[in-house]
Amino acid sequence: MGQPLPVPYVDFLRVMGRRMSGLSFQDGDFRIETLIRYYSSEESDRDRPPAIGISRYGPYGNSRETYERPIEMDQDEDSGEFVLAAYPPAERPHEFPESIRVFDLVDPTLYEALFAKAYLQYRWPQFKYQRTLFFEAHSPEEIAKGSAILEGFGFERHPESTVVVRYFDRQDATAIISPNPGEPVRLSLAAHDAMQLHHLADELSRRLPPVRASK
Rank of each mutant, 00 (worst) to 15 (best):
L187I: 04
E160S: 13
F103G: 06
H158R: 02
V106A: 13
S178R: 15
Y111G: 13
S178A: 15
E151H: 15
A144T: 12
K117F: 00
I177H: 04
K117V: 13
R170I: 01
F96V: 11
G152W: 01
R101V: 04
V163M: 15
A194Q: 14
P159Y: 05
Y119R: 11
E141H: 03
H192V: 01
Y129H: 15
F135R: 06
E77S: 08
D78N: 14
K128Y: 07
T109C: 00
A85C: 09
Y119D: 12
I177D: 00
A190P: 13
E136C: 04
Y122T: 07
I177E: 01
D78H: 07
V165R: 14
S139M: 04
V106R: 11
L114I: 08
V102P: 08
A90Y: 11
G146F: 02
P108G: 02
L197G: 10
P108D: 00
G80S: 05
L197E: 06
E151C: 09
P159A: 04
D169R: 14
F155I: 04
K128W: 01
P184C: 00
Y122N: 07
P140S: 03
V164N: 13
I149V: 08
H158M: 05
E160Y: 14
F115Y: 11
F135S: 14
Q196D: 07
G152S: 08
R170M: 06
P181I: 10
A148C: 02
S161W: 07
